[in-house]
Amino acid sequence: MNQTTPRPDDPAFTALWEAHRRRMLDLAFRMLLHFPDAEDVVQEAFARLARTDLVGIDDPEAWLVVVTSRLCLDKLRARRRRPTDGLDLVDDPFDPHAPDPSNRVALVDNVSMAMHALLERLSPAERTSFVLHDVFQYPFEEVATIVGRSAASCRQLASRARRTLRAESASGRFPVDSALHRQVSERFIEACIGGDLEGLLVLLDPAVEGKGDTVPGVAVGAAEVAPGILRYLGPPASPTLLHLPVGDRIGIVALRGRRVLALVLLTIEDGLVVHVDALAGPGPRAVVSAALGLR
């Protein structure tokens, strides 16, 4: 599907597309864990918005969240009725004989596959309630209007999903994305999108280290690392940035269209980024592409 604004000649609509598309894409991906499906859902949500009188919508972002979430819920229910091989990425993502997780590519591969397998075990309503409330902090009263159940029922659905995730986290098989990681990743992405050097610097430890797998050497210090990050992730390059939890680190995927450019891993200590690891080689990009469903 062509990922462009449905009303390119309408400045007001284009502004809404630019302001909200990335967040809707992030929401759809976290629910579906399949990037092409997430893109299609977001495109359809904006297409529906394009057919709606914007004057009658008080809060376009809230409107988009409801429509995007309901479209995702429909897809999740359809998957339950018609499971596809595309999501059955491995027979056992928790295979004890898997490659050494100290290998960065293997880590991304193993955790991503585990995340797919685990969330597929949740019912569509459990998954939707959990992602909307626990990940995106929407109140259960709003979640209820999307899921089509009472707020109390959605609270119970999210609780069941949370217990399942925590049980896997306690076993060491599936580290759960923390609220702190979510907050840091959002601020990191927003700073990159806006080319906000100061906003990025406040997220970095003064002694942060940055390295990549395609360039030699290690950058040391926030004043050196931050401009390098913006050079590749900020304007004018401006790739699409997507949050992908990877073990106990934050993963930021940079994409151009449906092509993965890099995976940036952020290590957090005491609320600050202490290490930035940019993986842009063919191996990591292929693994991330597979994890996103871009094969």
Rank of each mutant, 00 (worst) to 15 (best):
N2G: 14
R7T: 06
P8G: 08
P8L: 04
P11S: 08
F13Q: 10
W17Q: 09
A19K: 14
H20Q: 11
M24C: 15
L25H: 08
F29P: 01
L32E: 04
P36C: 06
P36F: 01
A38I: 00
E39T: 07
Q43E: 08
F46G: 06
R48T: 04
L49E: 07
L54W: 01
L54N: 10
V55A: 15
D58T: 09
E61L: 13
E61G: 04
L64Y: 06
V65P: 03
C72H: 10
K75A: 12
L76Q: 10
R77C: 03
R81K: 15
P83T: 07
L87H: 13
D88C: 05
L89N: 06
D92W: 03
P93N: 07
D100G: 09
N103L: 02
V105I: 02
V105K: 12
A106C: 02
L107F: 04
N110Y: 01
N110A: 09
A114Q: 09
H116S: 11
A117C: 05
E120V: 00
P124S: 10
E126H: 05
R127C: 03
T128G: 09
S129A: 15
F130K: 12
L132W: 06
V135E: 08
Q137G: 09
Y138R: 13
Y138H: 14
V143F: 03
V143P: 06
V143I: 02
A144S: 15
R149F: 03
A152M: 02
Q156L: 09
R163C: 05
S169I: 00
R173N: 13
F174W: 03
E186F: 03
R187H: 15
I189A: 07
L201T: 10
L204R: 10
D205C: 06
P206H: 14
V208S: 11
V208A: 11
E209W: 00
K211Y: 11
D213F: 03
V218D: 08
V220H: 15
G221Q: 05
G221S: 07
A223P: 00
E224F: 02
A226R: 10
A226K: 10
G228F: 04
L230Q: 07
L230C: 05
P235E: 09
P236G: 14
A237E: 11
T240F: 04
T240R: 14
L242A: 09
G247M: 04
I252L: 01
I252Q: 08
V253T: 11
G257W: 06
G257E: 09
T267A: 14
G271I: 00
V276C: 05
D277T: 07
A280N: 04
